[in-house]
Design a binder for these strands. Structure first.
Length: 767
DNA sequence: ATAGATGGCATTTTT
DNA sequence: TGCCATCTAT
């Protein structure tokens, strides 16, 4: 049996054992949130609640799968294997097998398949990003909007703004005023485009991501049988990462859990009206999705909306050492709004976090790689992660790792499902399931030579008007297309499992792929193998197709054995022994786009908090002094992120890159000894980097260390007694403040502050 | 009408 | 840099 009181702390236990009524669990980072949810699942099931009446809504499907998997292991461990001969009623060997789990989007789709939204008939098709852009392009050509007008926003921009306005539930006009005032002049054309886009979707039974949510809400509000169905089926709702829900999602959760729609609600609110079982789990300090409409008020107002909410706080941290927590807590301390969060741990102090100051983003990559190699001696690659604000921040590191042959997987950035060949195969799959899937049809048809958008549209329109024969005739004029259609026809006739179906599609498609991608088709073929692996988990090809459109399958692909590179957003909810955070400089982190509105800035701070709290024992913050910036025409100075500047030096250890490329601990002037020249016995280099950018270094004609030689400078151009001004390749002109025998000087560079630099790398300047 | 090519652009985060 | 959108020759 499961011993809840042994395995959980008091607060966790209370959360797990509070089965009925509204419940808000404010779970600090690393406070055992997943554990609590898993044990609560077990508790519910042990209380006799059928697992099939539990719905677990998570932020990603991956999170749901992980939790259910952990629940299964807990059950296995606690109950053992079922004894077949026992006369006792057997426990289900997989007690959680029927718990429903997934994202709001996939839940919405599962309901909308049964209860179609108003105006939609036939199979619903989920649009992915490419489909959406193609739709906008189509509409704008049709309406001749923005033609030849350079100032008119691109499809991507239009889509982003529209989606934002929908998620925040504000008129497009207001969203423009707020986020893109320079586009405000186009607001009426954009409204027009938006209307055309909506028509387009309806005509072709297409739903974009936002439609899934709004359509579900509409169905729940307008069709009592749909609401009754959902409520009858799921009586216990758990929502993970509640701080990142947007208003529709919160309303959907409330509706399904039993909250009456506003129209039916009594004027005084919901005094005793709410009888549902809804648990929200989240952390206001980790709310990082406001940009897509997440509303932190959902979690703050939860107790007001659901009267009688029990609030439980989880503040004991089981993940990180105390030194790491001190730094994370400090990040929040400077928040504009006072978050009452103070994480503590009983794990012990551990090591202080390191702040590493490389001279450039290039050497940042080299140092990070060197550090990773060092860490891999005592950690598995899967226990190490490099995090960054934006996808492209990891590019230099990716290059370095590739050179060194260090395998990594990257999350965030280019997505697997967006790879062209995967989308091709997916189109075939979708067309087998739904012959009228317009976007899939276009994608497949355009693989044939001589077929473009116009032809696609014509054939599709003909088919839509019911004249299937004529459409087939038109298609037959293109032999390749005809072959594809015959293939689809054949595949449809047979009842194939998802795996069989995909196998046949890939077989059919492979010759095409070899023509299309002569340079790298073997690699792509390998990627398609993965698709088949993924398909093995599905019985219903329809659900497979939807999931492939909704999420990145790479996320659940095999082992955690590779080093992780990830945006902070994608790292949410995960943890590693060692975490390196890159590019902690102004303009990058916080993102320069977040410097306008204070609330955006605060979200960056929470992002920093999320990043720091991913680490268990090792945390390193990288603060390069310069960045390569192509638009700025080369290497530009960079100032440390305010999130780093704010930190008290007592919280971390500081490593600085000398001009010889080695890292050494920064000397902090002892109190009362600020310029004392005698105690500069140099601490041993913490990690000496091999120059991974040899050719780059040569191009810049920088001397670099041999592997065995301690760098001995050549005759210094800056003499031992020199004073006054000098010049440095990156920092520019600076004033020599102090000599550090035998071979270094301390220089004050305007904009960079004091630097300790090998004298041989400086040239004299006239005062 | 299509396909291939050129040229211009901007570069946050995700379901 | 790589992605789009538009242009141009077929």
């Amino acid at each position: 049996m499961i011993d809840y009181e042994r395995d959980l702390n008091e607060a966790q236990f209370e959360a797990a054992a509070s089965t009925d009524g509204p419940l808000l669990v404010v779970a600090g980072a690393g406070s055992g949130k997943t554990r609590t949810i898993v044990y609560r699942l077990a508790y519910l099931v042990e209380s006799g609640i059928p697992a099939s009446s539990i719905l677990l809504l998570t932020f990603t499907r991956k999170a749901a799968v992980e939790m259910l998997e952990r629940a299964r292991r807990l059950a296995e461990h606690s109950y053992g294997l079922p004894k077949l001969s026992s006369s006792e009623p057997l426990l289900d060997p997989r007690p959680f097998a029927t718990v429903q789990g997934g994202t709001f989007h996939s839940y919405a789709y599962s309901i909308l398949r049964i209860f179609r939204p108003q105006g939609y008939s036939g199979n619903l098709t989920i649009m992915d990003n490419h489909d959406i852009l193609a739709a906008f392009q189509h509409c704008r050509e049709e309406l001749k909007i923005g033609k030849g007008d350079r100032s008119f926003p691109k499809n991507q921009t239009v889509n982003a703004l529209l989606s934002k306005s929908r998620n925040k539930e504000m008129p497009l006009e207001d969203a423009l005023r707020r986020d893109a005032p320079h586009l405000f002049m186009h607001h009426s054309a954009m409204e027009e485009l938006t209307a055309a886009y909506a028509r387009y979707k309806r005509e072709k039974s297409l739903l974009d991501y936002d439609d899934l949510l709004f359509s579900l809400e509409e169905v729940l509000l307008t069709r009592p049988e749909a609401l009754a169905y959902c409520r009858g089926r799921h009586k216990y709702i758990m929502v993970d990462e509640y701080q990142d829900t947007n208003p529709v999602q919160a309303r959907i959760a409330g509706l399904v859990a039993g909250l009456d729609p506003p129209a039916q609600r009594k004027p005084e609110g919901t005094p005793d009206g709410f009888r549902g079982n809804l648990m929200a789990v989240g952390d206001d300090a980790q709310s990082i999705y406001a940009f897509r409409g997440a509303d932190i008020r959902n979690i703050l107002d939860f107790p007001k909306i659901f009267k009688g909410t029990k609030i439980i706080r989880l503040e004991e941290n089981y993940r990180s050492t105390q030194h790491l927590l001190n730094l994370s807590n400090a990040v929040l301390e400077n928040a504009a709004e006072g978050y009452a969060k103070h994480l503590f741990t009983r794990r012990g102090d551990g090591l202080k976090p390191n702040i590493v100051r490389p001279l450039s983003d290039r050497s940042q990559a080299a140092h990070a790689a060197a550090r990773i190699i060092e860490l891999m001696r005592s950690h598995r690659p899967g226990d190490i992660a490099v995090l960054f604000r934006s996808g492209f921040h990891s590019f230099p590191l990716e290059v370095t790792l590739n050179k060194l042959g260090i395998a990594f997987k990257k999350y965030g950035g280019v997505r697997y499902t967006e790879a062209a060949h995967v989308r091709d195969v997916l189109s075939f799959l979708r067309l087998v399931l739904n012959p009228m899937d317009f976007t899939a049809f276009c994608r497949m048809a355009e693989l044939s030579r001589g077929v473009g958008v116009k032809t696609c549209l014509k054939i599709y329109q003909t088919a839509l008007s019911g004249d299937g024969e004529k459409a087939a005739e038109m298609a037959a004029r293109h032999p390749e297309l005809a072959g594809d259609l015959a293939f689809l026809e054949n595949a449809r006739r047979r009842e194939l499992t998802p795996v069989q179906l995909l196998t046949e599609i890939i077989e059919h498609y492979t010759p095409r792929m070899e023509l299309l991608y002569p340079d790298d088709y073997p690699r792509r073929a390998q990627g398609l193998e993965q698709l088949i692996q993924i398909a093995a988990a599905y019985k219903d090809p329809d659900l497979l197709a939807v999931d492939l459109s909704l999420e990145d399958p790479e996320n659940r692909e095999e082992g955690a054995e590779a080093l992780t590179l990830s945006t902070i957003h994608s790292a949410k909810g995960l943890e590693w022994n060692a975490v390196l955070i890159l590019d902690l400089v102004e303009e990058r982190f916080p993102s320069r786009h977040a410097m306008v509105r204070p609330e955006d800035y605060e979200e960056e701070r929470r992002l920093m908090y999320v990043a720091c709290t991913r680490a268990r024992t090792v945390l390193e913050l990288y603060v390069p002094s310069s960045l390569y910036d192509r638009s700025g025409g080369g290497t530009m100075p960079a100032s440390p992120s305010p999130f780093v500047r704010e930190l008290s030096p007592s919280l971390y250890r500081e490593l600085q890159e000398g001009w010889d490329g080695a890292l050494s601990e920064k000397r902090r002037p002892a109190p009362g000894n600020r310029l004392g020249g005698n105690d500069f016995s140099r601490p041993p280099p913490v990690s000496k980097i091999v120059d991974f950018h040899t050719h780059a270094a040569r191009n810049r004609s920088l001397p670099h260390e041999d592997d065995n030689a301690a760098a001995e400078p050549e005759a210094p151009p800056v003499g031992p007694d020199a004073c006054g001004f000098c010049r440095h390749r990156i920092f520019g002109r600076g004033k020599i403040v102090q000599h550090l025998p035998p071979d270094k000087v301390r220089v004050n560079f305007p904009g960079f502050g004091l630097k300790v630099i090998m004298a041989s790398y400086l040239s004299m300047e006239d005062g």
